[in-house]
Design a protein around this nucleic acid. Structure first.
Lengths: 296, 296
DNA sequence: TTGCTGTCATAATTTTTAATTATGAATAAT
DNA sequence: ATTATTCATAATTAAAAATTATGACAGCAA
């Protein structure tokens, strides 16, 4: 009863246009009986005649004309979709929901966003900034397509592509600029200021300094690198920041930067996405763009 | 390449909605592999993946979501069309292009139009008024669906349904109201006013009076019954009009009506349409409505 | 009338498409 | 490691749609 097919609509349109079974069949590149049968089936399943057949003419009935308008709309929509698919299959990304951790976002985003939108002019780019565990959850959930986080993630369902490795540097008040470099495990006693729980950068810093994550550290947490640096400038303590943040953050506070001896503490930043995401190639391309922007 | 089917769209929508091959297949009342294969074929012919398959989830890719919107539009249009067909197949007329001859139109139309639109509230009614030969041509051409003319038409391709038979009556100036009835073949000498060539009513009148259609009759032709009656009122001659026109036309001119003895001259008016028109039943219904209106 | 022609419908058959059942591979959960 | 879940693949059957051949019917010309 309710088994209309696009094939029937196509044949119908050809017949409506030609007004002749033989010519319509030719236009569809099929035999005349094939078209005849399809039209008959169509009329049968609709329950009324679409064409008035006379020995000298085939023409639309009143209902046929109304049907023709609807059929035309549908066929046009289908053709549109095919066109769209044709351009879409160039492997291009239509929409990218990208997560970025807060210790990277403010410094990296401005550098690569324009590159991405230039490479993919039609892309619909959404950026979400939050801590790694949340990003991973949303990624696995399908709420994000990819994320820029510190590697490794230890998530078997995720593919990783490393983008760059950067040093962590020590930030001290400006007056300490001549002071000697202290060993990492001495930092805690100098009142080491860190990000709140959840930030992977905090964990990395603690690990570098051999401080137990469980130990209470009241009053020494900030919610952003910017805040931490301001606190250092006010003489409250010292902190660690990634190399990438140096330019931006040290400009607005009286602090000085000290790099550690070899081997310096580092973190590796990468792009991650679900292994099951079929756009792996395109995502890897995005990764290259980000990598290029980060190095510049 | 370009062989999309509605079946594929249906399965696609089910899978997009369920996010699970097994359940989507169940919803479509088919087996899981059947759905799997159709989705695969669809993706293959599009040239890109619509779904991201993971061991624990099946979800739309970005392109898949865009595709889903288009697919939804198309499926909705198809569903609409099915709904429309459902109501349309009640044998109802959507559009009626009706031809009527000029000696009937002004008197009959006002009587039945409201009945027709009442019986078919959604009808799209077009009325064309012209002489019989032209109506027949347009009917055979498919430019009209039906016509109200004097029978018979002698057209083998047309079906006829007689509606009513009416007398032709004599119209004379009012001052002749007491005058005796003259025999038909004497009318010519009393300056018989007739419609122009092409009107079937003219031919019927000539035939009744035994006048040769070929004979020149200069200055005695009018373009409408109304004109003829006015001319009679002005004392220029006499004329014949159909019974149905009496009420309307004698009201505005100083004329009197005389009926002929038995057997009176009559004409039979009928509805005609192409035999090949599939809406015969509905047209016959229209005929009944017109018949009822004519008798009232 | 009597073929002849154009045109669509129908029938028999083959080809193509889409379903089924059975089974395999991958992976998360136990 | 084992099991359960879930999707893909293969072999087969069923259904749909094509083909070729032929029939029916009306218009037209001899």
């Amino acid at each position: 009863m309710n088994n209309l097919t696009l094939r029937q609509l196509t044949y119908f349109e050809a017949l409506a246009h030609e007004g002749h079974f033989g010519r319509a069949a030719e236009r569809c590149a099929i035999s005349q009986p094939a078209l005849s049968v399809q039209i008959k089936d169509l009329e049968e399943s609709l329950g009324f005649a679409l064409f008035e057949r006379g020995p000298r003419h085939v023409r639309l009935t009143a209902l046929g004309e109304a049907f023709a308008r609807r059929a035309g709309d549908i066929l046009r929509a289908v053709a549109d979709m095919n066109d769209w698919a044709e351009t879409a299959k160039g492997g291009r990304i239509e929409r990218l929901r990208l997560g970025v951790i807060p210790t990277i976002a403010p410094y990296l985003l401005p550098r690569f966003i324009s590159n991405v939108t230039q490479a993919y002019p039609t892309i619909d780019l959404h950026v979400r900034e939050t801590v790694t565990p949340r990003l991973i959850t949303e990624l696995l959930d399908g709420r994000l397509d990819a994320a820029i986080v510190a590697l490794p993630t230890d998530e078997p369902a995720l593919a990783e592509m490393s983008l760059f490795t950067e040093e962590m540097v020590l930030v001290r008040p400006e007056k300490d600029s001549g002071a000697p470099l202290v060993p990492p495990n001495a930092l805690d006693e100098m009142r080491l200021l860190l990000l709140e729980e959840g930030h992977c950068f905090r964990d990395q810093a603690l690990s570098f300094c051999n401080i137990s994550p469980a130990r209470p550290r009241d009053g020494l947490d900030g919610s952003s690198l910017s805040t931490l640096v301001q606190m250092v400038g006010a003489g409250i303590g010292v902190t660690l920041i990634p190399d990438m943040a140096v330019d931006v953050e040290t400009r607005s506070a009286p602090v000085c930067i000290t790099r550690f001896d070899t081997p310096p503490p580092t973190r590796t930043v990468g792009l991650v996405w679900r292994k099951s995401n079929p756009m792996t190639d395109a995502l890897r391309e995005i990764g290259h763009i980000v990598r290029g922007a980060a190095q510049a």
